[in-house]
Each structure stands twice: as structure tokens, then as C-alpha cells.
Design a binder for these strands. Structure first.
Lengths: 205, 205
DNA sequence: GAATGTGAAAATATTCACAGCG
DNA sequence: CGCTGTGAATATTTTCACATTC
């Protein structure tokens, strides 16, 4: 089920979904059945017809957790931060950026998009005011751990980390990393295989 | 084995590696044995001692494919592109950016870091001159597919895609996506679970 | 007929646990 | 001893295949 969403038809068969997503039809059915069992969809797919796109789209959102609102804080108004603000697209998915912070004095006070960059000292207030759950960490490597700790202390529940370091965080705080180097390595590995997928022994993901 | 690298000791035991990486020691040994069987490391770990960090670090690089040189083209000199250039870190890992292209006339000719932004028409020449393998696609969503097609035509082997679309590419071209929305969704999902990891049935990754 | 839901089978991945080496 | 390499035992995931429903 993972990535998906998309589509736009009225109903879809598991086979079509599977083809589009690169999974077997049985896999799709299993996953969708799971959604139903979790109580997110009132009814399963119809035999001979398929799954109701609209119903399942929102059911899936429910399972994934993007039916909620996720007040999100952006830290770092450098290039990555600006790129994210420019992208905007995730407001539609429940991620609502409530404020932008940066440790760099020179950036504080500047206007970026509809935000005015705040100093780091605004963190606690932000956290309380907006009932913060998620923070996007778009700061340089060296600042990342320090900021992460502050975020944990401020009660953030999840961090999306763009810095190429493994963050140490308080128990109960989730971290997801977006690391370009890692992505490039994966790509390189995929290309390297190409010919020699060889007799796989047991290799890790 | 996946992410790893790091370390800095002379030898490491599978247990320590496992702890650091979040895998079982047996898992680590299996993976490392795999590296040996692929012929990348001349000798395995030493009983009672562990694995030679240096030897295995390069052996792993070999397996992953970052012992090669990967001439890399950056397309898009917007915020993401600039952030990537500023990051720089991957030159050390074999990814060498050979040129920066952008479709936007206004950016062409501008100097960013050590590069002068080239027009898209420079693609073919670049490809030939530098024996291009990888392209980083940091352009707006709407331009992504079109550029991707040009890249395929120019003989690129892999694309690292930052645009939030699923690219259609020629058979044999690998695509790795870096999609912030997806990352955020994953994070949201992880947080949502938290308490209710519930009786798992079979749910997809 | 077309498509679901699901047990049972096959394939994969992970862990255990232990012989054997330095 | 501590630690590797690995077969055997488990657990997990994916696929098959089929009775069942619309």
C-alpha cells in the first residue's frame, strides 16, 4: 500500500492497482483487507467490481495518519528550507508549516514566502502555541544535533532530518532521514548491479 | 549492511556493528560474509577479534559501487540545486558534479559555486564529453518528465529525482526518488503508530 | 464473468546456537 | 576466552489458487 494515492477512477481492481504500483494483485488485496480490518473502511471491495477509489483513498489516509493535522515547524531558512517552502505541496496533505526558525542572526527577521524568520529562542513559545508535533530540520550538519536536542526538549514528536548525521533523540521521538548521499549510493548500487544481479545469497536491503 | 560506513576503530565485532546499526550480530555476520563471497574482501573477519575496519570499509564501497567514479550532472539551479551544490559532501563519495544545467534562461550564465549554469541545449555535449552516468533532477514538477526523457535519450543510466512525480524512463535507466512528502508521510505514520502498533496482521511496509 | 477475501504453499529474511579458530 | 562462519530453526512476506459473492 505504501506510497500510492493518485488514481481518479471510480473503482479500481486489485490487479490494476498492483500493476500501477508494482505489486501483485494478491498483495494489494491483502493490504486493502488490512485497511478494512483496522476499521478504517466500512466495507471492503466488491466482488466483480473492485474497490471504491474515494472511500479507500480516505481510508488509506486514515491508516497512514494524514487525515490528522500535523502542525509542522521548519528550522533552517537556507536553501533547503527555502526549497521546501517553495514546494508548498504538503499543506494539502495535512502538514501545515506554522513557523520558520533559524539560528543565523542575519536571517532572522527576513521574510520568506509568507513567513518571517524567527530566532531559535522562539522555539518554546511556538511549541506551546501551536501544539507542535513535527519539525523539519534543514540546518547545516554541525548544528543539527544541537537543534534536535532542543526540539526533543520542546516536546516535538517527530523530526524530518535533512542533515547527513544520525541524530540522537529522546525515547519516543521518531526521526526520518532524507539524505542525498544515501540516495545517490542506492542509485549507484542499482546501476552497478544492472548486469550482475548474480546468484543472490542473502544480501541486505 | 545498507547504510553504514562511519566507524573509525581498527577492528569491530559484529555485535558492536549490529548495535550501532540496529541489526542483530548474526545479521551483520551474514552480510559481511556475503561481501567476502562476492570477492570484494580478500579475507573475512578474524575469530576472536572482529573485522578490519579499513579493509571492510573499502570492500563495502566496492559492493555498493562507490569505488567507481560517477560523473554526475545537476539539472536545475533553483533552491534545491543550490542546496546540493552547497552541500558538496558527495564529491568524496565518488559523485563528481561535472556541470549544472537549467531550462530557465534567466539563470543560464549565472555563476553558482564553481559552476556557470548552462542551457539545456548543452546536454548532449555534456553527455559525450564527460561520459555521463548519473543526473540529479532538481527541477519543478511540471518540467521533470520532459527533462527525464531528454536525459534518457542522452544515455544517462540513473536519475536521482527530487520532483514529486513518478518518472517514466527508458528500460535500463534507474530512478531513485527523494520525495519530501513521502518522507513526511512515513514520519506521520510512525508517530501515529506509537501506541497502537496493535496486533499486526500483515500490513505492508 | 470479473473480482474479492483468504487459507495454504513457497520464497525470503532473521535469529539461534554452536562448532572451530586465533 | 571472544568472535566468526554457518546450518538449522523461526518468523515474516509474497504468491498461488480457489471457493464465494456480485
Amino acid at each position: 500500500m505504501q506510497v500510492l494515492i493518485a488514481a481518479g477512477e471510480i473503482t479500481v481492481s486489485s490487479r490494476k492497482l498492483g500493476e500501477a504500483l508494482g505489486y501483485s494483485s494478491a498483495q494489494v488485496r491483502k493490504d486493502l483487507a488490512w485497511v478494512v480490518h483496522l476499521g478504517r473502511a466500512s466495507e471492503g471491495g466488491q466482488s466483480g467490481v473492485g474497490y471504491d477509489c474515494v472511500a479507500f483513498e480516505s481510508a488509506i489516509r486514515g491508516v497512514i495518519g494524514i487525515d490528522r493535522h500535523w502542525p509542522t515547524l521548519l528550522i533552517g531558512a537556507g536553501n533547503i528550507g527555502r526549497a521546501l517552502l517553495g514546494y508548498g505541496g504538503f499543506a494539502a496533505q495535512g502538514f501545515r508549516i506554522v513557523s520558520v526558525l533559524d539560528a543565523d542572526e542575519r536571517l532572522v527577521g527576513r521574510k520568506i514566502g509568507r513567513f518571517v524568520v524567527q530566532p531559535m529562542s522562539a522555539l518554546r513559545r511556538c511549541s506551546r502555541t501551536h501544539n507542535l508535533t513535527i519539525a523539519i530540520l534543514a540546518v547545516p550538519r554541525d548544528a543539527a544535533q544541537s537543534v534536535a536536542s532542543q526540539l526533543c526538549a520542546a516536546g516535538v514528536r517527530g523530526i524530518l532530518n535533512f542533515a547527513p548525521v544520525r541524530l540522537c533523540v529522546t525515547e519516543g521521538v521518531s526521526v526520518t532521514n532524507v539524505d542525498v548521499s544515501v540516495a545517490l549510493e542506492q542509485l549507484a548500487m542499482t546501476i552497478s548491479r544492472g548486469e550482475a544481479q548474480s546468484r543472490a545469497m542473502n544480501g541486505a536491503a
